[in-house]
């Protein structure tokens, strides 16, 4: 693999031009998001209506929660393809309870345990067995899928307790509750990554694993924790999403594995590790959700949602997250 480190000619850049470039490259993603909003609003006034914005937010929340976990993993040079499988498995497991609110705690606990266990397994395979993250998480994804299907015999029924329904689909003054769940998660995650010592360990581990080893950072542990964070957040998002949808099936969260990676990458989290921020990744998620929403709103056939999704992935990445190799 080529190194992602620019080594040429960057030594004595003139300051103003340099800082301009840096401003654009640091904030390009947010500028793009604002521009996207403006364009969508200009094309369709309905886009900026409160009910649509609320709708947008409630779709944003589950994806954003998964993106946060995914970003932790990508920062340590990993990748988590198992998130969607974890989401569905947590949701399916939830239906094995009574479906009443008094079971909310065990439902939540079981879901989070599933997420944590998957993350632990992923992290173990990646660090102790040196399996490539793509494969390790692909394998756990498939295994979980098999377990889930065997358990439900292909046809799960039931729903999550009403409290998740409220959390996933309810709103107050047009602001969906799930946004509050996201805000809480995001606040903790941002503090953890950008203020706490653990976050620095994440960046050093992802930036140069050999350095991490030399300076005595327990990088295996740091990496495993990142996968656990991803698993736990995916499970949580799965419960919220199934509350949003109302019914649980085997495919809760379908597409989230790829969308979460894409959102993080659009948001500037480099697949080569050690580069990117959570606010950037969240902006990436917002861009994706906005595009999906706009396609429907503009009355385009739903197929265009997929086509435009593909194009946005490529175009946005080409703009903001070029490999510097």
């Amino acid at each position: 693999m080529t190194s992602a480190i620019p080594t040429q000619g960057a030594s004595g850049k003139t300051r103003d031009r340099d800082s301009l470039v840096r401003f654009a490259s640091r904030n390009g993603i947010y500028l793009f998001l604002v521009a996207l909003f403006a364009v969508c609003g200009a094309i369709s006034p309905a886009f900026l209506r409160l009910d649509n914005l609320g709708n947008l937010l409630s779709q944003f929340a589950p994806l954003a929660i998964v993106v946060i976990g995914q970003s932790f993993v990508i920062l340590v040079r990993g990748l988590d393809l198992s998130v969607a499988s974890v989401m569905a498995t947590a949701a399916v497991a939830a239906t094995s309870f009574s479906g009443r609110d008094q079971d909310a705690v065990p439902v939540l606990a079981l879901g989070l345990v599933i997420g944590a266990a998957t993350g632990l397994l992923n992290g173990f395979l990646v660090t102790k067995r040196q399996v490539s993250p793509f494969l390790a998480t692909l394998a756990t994804m498939i295994v979980l899928q098999g377990v889930r299907f065997a358990w439900t015999h292909g046809a799960p029924s039931g729903s999550v307790p009403p409290i998740f329904r409220t959390l996933g689909a309810g709103s107050v003054d047009g602001i969906p509750y799930n946004i509050f769940a996201l805000l809480a998660v995001a606040a903790v995650a941002i503090v953890l990554l950008h203020k706490a010592t653990f976050g620095r360990q994440v960046y050093i581990t992802g930036g140069n694993p050999l350095t991490a080893r030399l300076v005595g950072i327990p990088s295996d542990r740091v990496t495993i924790i990142c996968y656990v964070i991803s698993g736990v957040l995916a499970a949580f998002a799965g419960l919220i999403l199934s509350g949003f949808v109302g019914v649980v099936d085997n495919w809760v969260g379908k597409g989230f594995e790829l969308n979460s990676i894409v959102a993080a990458v659009i948001g500037g989290v480099a697949l080569s590790g050690g580069r990117g921020t959570l606010p950037g990744a969240l902006a990436g998620a917002a861009i994706l959700v906005t595009v999906f929403n706009a396609v429907l709103l503009f009355g385009l056939p739903v197929q265009f949602q997929i086509i435009i999704q593909g194009l946005v992935i490529i175009v946005a990445t080409a703009f903001y997250a070029r490999q510097s190799a």
Binding site: Q309, G310, I313
Partner: peptide
């Protein structure tokens, strides 16, 4: 991945 989405659409 992007190409895949476009082609599926």
């Amino acid at each position: 991945l992007g190409m895949g989405a476009v082609l599926q659409g």
